[in-house]
Nucleic acid binder design. Structure first.
Length: 851
RNA sequence: GCGGGCGUGGCGGAAUGGUAGACGCCGGGGACUUAAAAUCCCCUGAGCUUUGCUCGUGCGGGUUCGAGUCCCGCCGCCCGCACCA
């Protein structure tokens, strides 16, 4: 094999410890990845969800960012001006926890983490525009966020109301729901109290319909995410009406989505938290005990679904608006105070929960829907309600109507007679953004004794978080800071106090993608600059953000459009949610407490049948293959594997084998295989011979087919398929004899792998004497003429079973194909003289002979 | 309970209704080497009476000339959830 120009490739092996850093430096020097918004090229905005700076990059980040990087580099090669930025979701509780545990400052801790993680990302060679880096904890970011918050306040989308929080009386702090474990503070173990505080809210419910409608247009979002958002928004339409008390002087307001079944109502049920239940509890200690029992029950959906339906008969009666019959009022554990009115009309015949309840307490179960009017007396089968379709029966003026028509009729009648009205109910509630925390964006308001709540004038922004705080004493450091909160009222000049709540960090991540595209010093963004880049062409991140982050970002974008600051409603044109990186776990049960003790893969020998702890040679239990997490010790550290195999092998592994939306099981043999492939390519690049002559048509075809296929694969984010094709092309080139075609193929291969293995590709680019950096080279051109084969292999089937294959010229007429197939020796033997009844010919694909 | 997704070799996975198992990993055999590593070549779904044949994509049916792919009914696993009236 003739040796090509070796250039830097003087070693026998590709040495990532030398090459990676050298090329990373070269890219930075050339500023290749800095996005120019004034470029005449078409724009492409590729974004991965920015990380929380916890201290170390996680392997899941590596997978996420590698996918985005391949797309960003590919787009650049295709002639786009690419915006591919990175930043830090830098506010949040872990920094405060670290401050309390280790006595460090949240700011110092966060900034140190950012520095470490940035270095880790750089080691992976990501094509990121670091000139646009953002950290949400810096005043130049959150100050602009404060300005936007004030704009939304002025437009009426921000308001205050009383709302309950989880209060930890020992730590003197408000807890997030996930910090409350079995009713106790996660750190202090103290019983958590509910406290009412005046808090800030954003009117996301104003946009409920719009957010729901917008989902239809998001065709390039996963259906799963759209469905999750739809369910979260939770629109339902129905009838709200009241029952008049017949033995008490009050009305009970109920909401139903099935007004058609109103004649089937046999009782009314109210939530344990309903005012009527509370009022009753004052005089009826049995009722009080029942309410207490409901409160103690489980809270998860699965628990509630399987929990027994329980109720308490209040003795109160109401009058049915149509029949005039008396219906009993029960307190029921399955009715929620937070939804609708906290009271329902129960229709046991056509709702399973009502059915279970009625059966238990021996309440009537009338039928008002039946397959036909003749089935009006049909009994219910073995304990099952019939929520499905049918016609109305036993329902007076509704008899014979469809469910839809009956609903309209009942709503109209209620409206007309004034005892009810049609109503749309949403599950979505307004977004509470107040956090009683230090490490977040200060909410830019001032509380004045005479003027009330006054916005901080924009020229006094940013309201900077003080850095001189202590965490030695419990409680919010902002509240007890000696000077920070004391200010003069901007309106009247009297002594006043700053708001000490900070914003939910989901606010920070609701507009960072805008700030990446445009970051002027004097305003949040420039609208014309945004128009050049937004919406994000491809957004990539974890499925765990399917609802909150993605819904809040959609809302925030709409809200900014609503107040006239931007010109688009949807922030992310395409969304992709990638799978997790997984590994099996190794553990033993600790005899002392019955809890598992986990061991890291490095401590375990897995070469034999089971798994053995190297330290003592005794077996450990092999657990399921699950997401890598520190607590289960089934982790690999990106830095370690980059040290061992180099950035390109790690990137290659992240793209190989598993489809990107599925989980990727980590394996040592897998990463070793990737490392070998890197070296194999290196050797192949070294074989480049600029002077080789002659044409290899078959190889030319393979090369061009691969260029086209990989472009399709990358655009569809099918990285695992692209990887398989690159292996195929590599093998084909290795097997080919020297020729000009082969040299071209090697050159093409360098370009094709460059989005995935950029460091190796730069070395290869030098080896083939490519001009400039391959990072700035163009994607190879495809010759359409070479995409088609001139010979095809045709399957020959007899009665659908493969019996032979034929290699024929492409486009051979059906009749000739049929004749060739029938002439096949193997076919004749199988047919064994049987009469051919039918022949199906699919041109260039197959012939099926039916005998 | 409800909603969504997924079941293909020892493993990860390919496959517009048209040659099931591409590609990678593991494993086996061979070449090179004093030896090893590295590398290269070959084999590698199961079974059988092995010039070939039969079976085979979770299970049972169906549609079709032809089904991993479409339809119906099950089973199993995973994810999400809010008893939403």
């Amino acid at each position: 094999m003739p040796r090509g120009r070796l250039g830097l490739m003087s070693e026998n092996r590709f040495d990532p410890s030398q090459a990676d850093g050298r090329w990373q430096h070269a890219w930075a020097e050339a500023q290749c990845f800095e996005a120019d918004s004034n470029s005449p090229k078409p724009k492409s905005y590729v974004l991965e969800m920015f990380p929380y700076p916890s201290g170390r990059i996680h392997i899941g980040h590596v997978r996420n960012y590698t996918m985005g990087d391949v797309l960003a580099r590919y787009k650049r090669m295709q002639g786009f001006e690419v915006l591919h930025p990175m930043g830090w979701d830098a506010f949040g509780m872990p920094a405060e926890n670290a401050a309390m545990e280790k006595g460090v400052h949240p700011g110092g801790w966060t900034r140190e983490n950012i520095a470490n993680m940035k270095a880790q990302l750089k080691r992976l060679g990501f094509a990121l525009d670091w000139s646009r880096e953002i950290a949400t904890c810096e005043p130049d970011y959150y100050g602009q966020e404060q300005a936007l918050f004030l704009d939304l306040y002025e437009s009426g989308l921000v308001y205050r109301k009383e709302s309950a929080v989880n209060w930890d009386p020992v730590d003197q702090t408000v807890l997030a729901n996930e910090q409350v474990i079995d009713g106790r503070g996660w750190r202090s173990g103290a019983l958590v109290e509910k406290r009412k505080l005046s808090q800030w809210f954003l009117k996301i419910t104003d946009f409920a319909q719009d957010l729901l409608d917008g989902l239809d247009g998001l065709e390039n979002w996963p259906d799963k995410v759209r469905l999750m958002q739809e369910n979260w928004i939770g629109k339902s339409t129905g009838l709200q009406f009241h029952f008049r008390g017949s033995n008490f002087d009050e009305e009970i307001e109920v909401y139903t989505t099935r007004p058609d079944t109103i004649f089937g109502a046999s009782f009314v049920a109210v939530a344990a938290e309903h005012p009527i239940a509370h009022a009753l509890a004052d005089t009826d200690h049995m009722a009080a005990a029942f309410i207490e029992q409901c409160r103690a029950g489980g809270t998860t959906a699965a628990e509630l679904e399987t929990a027994e339906k329980l109720g308490y008969d209040t003795g109160l009666k109401v009058t049915h608006p149509f029949t005039g019959h008396e219906l009993p009022v029960w307190i029921a554990n399955f009715v929620l105070m937070e939804y609708g009115t906290g009271a329902i009309m129960a229709v046991p015949g056509h709702d399973q929960r009502d059915f279970d309840f009625a059966t238990k307490y021996d309440l009537p179960i009338p039928r008002v829907i039946a397959p036909s009017e003749a089935d009006a007396a049909k009994p219910f089968a073995n304990g099952e309600a019939e929520p499905g379709d049918g016609v109305l029966v036993n329902s007076d003026f509704l008899n014979g109507l469809s469910i839809e028509d009956a609903q309209v009729a009942v709503v109209n009648r209620a409206d007309h007679e004034g005892w009810g009205h049609g109503k749309t109910v949403w599950r979505l509630r307004d977004w509470g953004v107040s956090r009683q925390r230090y490490w977040g964006t200060p909410i830019p308001f001032i509380h004045c004794g005479t003027c009330g709540v006054v916005p901080v004038p924009k020229d006094q922004l940013p309201v900077v978080l003080p850095e001189d705080v202590d965490f030695a004493t419990p409680g919010n450091p902002l509240v007890r800071h000696p000077t920070w909160k004391h200010v003069d009222c901007p309106k009247c000049g009297a002594k006043a106090e700053r708001e000490t709540d900070t914003l939910d960090t989901f606010v920070d991540s609701s507009w960072y993608f805008l700030r990446f595209a445009s970051q002027p010093a004097d305003k949040p963004f420039d609208r014309d600059e945004l128009a050049k880049w937004l919406p994000v062409e491809q957004y990539i991140g974890g499925i765990e953000h399917a609802i909150l982050h993605l819904l809040y970002a959609r809302f925030w974008t709409r809200a900014l459009q609503h107040i006239g600051l931007i010109d688009f409603a949807e922030p992310f044109a395409s969304l992709f949610t990638q799978g997790m990186v997984t590994h099996e776990t190794y553990s033993r049960v600790d005899p002392a407490n019955g809890q598992p003790i986990y061991f890291s893969p490095g401590e375990v020998d897995r070469s034999g049948e089971g798994a053995v702890l190297q330290a003592d040679g005794s077996p450990v239990d092999i657990g399921r293959v699950i997401k890598m997490s520190k607590s289960k010790k089934n982790v690999v550290d990106p830095d370690d594997i980059i040290d061992q195999y180099g950035a390109d092998a790690v990137r290659w592994f992240m793209l190989s084998d598993s489809p990107p939306e599925r989980d990727l099981p980590w394996s040592v043999s897998g990463i070793e295989g990737c490392g070998k492939y890197v070296q194999r390519l290196w050797r192949l690049f070294g074989q480049y011979d600029a002077g080789a002559e002659g044409e290899d048509k078959a190889l030319d075809r393979k090369t061009h087919q691969t260029i086209a296929a990989i472009a399709d694969d990358i655009e569809g984010l099918g990285f695992n398929k692209a990887v398989a094709r690159l292996y195929e092309l590599t093998s084909a080139i290795e097997k080919a004899k020297p020729s000009a075609s082969r040299s071209t193929a090697i050159r093409t291969l360098v370009q094709l792998v460059s989005p995935m293995m950029p460091h190796l590709a730069e070395e290869g680019w030098v080896a083939i004497a490519g001009e400039g950096l391959v990072a700035e080279a163009a994607w190879p051109e495809v010759d359409p003429a070479l995409l088609v084969e001139d010979e095809v292999t045709v399957a020959v089937q007899v009665k659908g079973k493969l019996r032979d294959t034929l290699t024929v010229a492409k486009g051979l007429p059906n009749a000739e194909l049929e004749a060739l197939a029938l002439a096949s020796e193997k076919v004749q033997r199988i047919l064994d003289g049987a009469e051919v009844r039918k022949v199906i010919v699919v041109p260039d694909r197959l012939v099926n002979i039916v005998a």
